[in-house]
C-alpha cells in the first residue's frame, strides 16, 4: 500500500460507506446502479450485482460517431438526473459506465456526495470533459455536444446553462489557461 496505513484505512472505510449509500440514492434518482448485496466497511468491501455489458470507455474507442453521440447523450442525461436529486457522482469517467442494451449503469460512487451546489455539479461534468479530451480526443466536439444535449434535456435550459458556465469558470482557474 502506498498510503500510510492510518490514512488509507480512514479513506477506504469512508468511501465504502459512501459508495453503498450513494448507489442506493442513485437508483432513487432514476439512475441505474448495481444492487447491493453486502457491505463490509471494516474490510472496505462491497458485494454487488454483476452488470452484463461493455465498459463505455471501450465502446467509445471502436464506436461509430452516431453510437458515440448516443452514449454521451445518455451519460449527460444520467448526470443531470443525479444532480437534480442533489447527488454528485465524483468520478464520472467513461470507465465507470457500463452499457447494456439501451440502458446505462453507473458504478464507483466512492467519491460521491450529497450536494446541490452548481460548482460541484460542474466538477462532475469537468471530469467527463477531461476524459473525453484526454482519452477520446477524436470524438471531442461530437461527444461534448451530445453530453450537453443530454444534460440539458433533463436539467432544463436554465440549470444547464448555469452548470456549463461554471464549468468554463473552473477551466479558467486551471494553470496557464489563457488569462494573462
Amino acid at each position: 500500500m502506498y498510503r500510510l496505513r492510518v490514512l488509507d484505512d480512514a479513506i477506504r472505510r469512508q468511501r465504502t460507506v459512501r459508495e453503498a449509500e450513494m448507489m442506493h440514492s442513485a437508483r432513487g434518482a432514476g439512475v441505474r446502479s448495481p444492487h447491493l448485496y453486502f457491505v463490509d466497511p471494516r474490510g472496505a468491501a462491497i458485494v454487488m450485482e454483476y452488470i452484463e455489458g461493455e465498459r463505455m470507455k471501450d465502446a467509445v474507442d471502436g464506436g461509430s460517431p452516431k453510437k458515440v453521440a448516443g452514449m454521451f447523450r445518455r451519460l449527460g442525461l444520467a448526470a443531470a438526473r443525479l444532480h437534480s436529486a442533489g447527488i454528485m457522482h465524483g468520478d464520472l469517467t467513461t470507465a465507470n459506465v457500463i452499457l447494456g442494451g439501451r440502458e446505462i449503469t453507473l458504478l464507483d460512487f466512492g467519491l460521491s456526495s450529497h450536494t446541490t451546489r452548481v460548482e460541484d455539479h460542474a466538477v462532475d461534468l469537468r471530469l467527463i470533459k477531461e476524459t473525453i479530451v484526454g482519452a477520446h480526443p477524436g470524438f471531442s466536439a461530437l461527444a461534448l455536444d451530445a453530453l450537453h444535449e443530454g444534460y440539458s434535456s433533463e436539467a432544463g435550459p436554465g440549470r444547464s446553462k448555469a452548470v456549463f458556465t461554471q464549468l468554463k469558470g473552473i477551466e479558467r482557474r486551471g494553470r496557464y489557461a489563457r488569462v494573462v
Binding site: 477531461e130 476524459t131 479530451v133 484526454g134 482519452a135 480526443p137 477524436g138 473552473i170 482557474r173 486551471g174 494553470r175 496557464y176
Partner: peptide, 24 residues
C-alpha cells in the same frame, strides 16, 4: 512549483487527465 498535472499522450498532444484545482 508551476505544475501539478497527470498527463498522457494521445491524438498528437500531451493531454491533461487530471490536475490541481488550486495550488501546485
Amino acid at each position: 512549483g508551476g505544475h501539478t498535472m497527470v498527463i498522457s499522450f494521445s491524438g498528437g498532444r500531451w493531454r491533461v487527465l487530471g490536475e490541481s484545482l488550486d495550488l501546485t
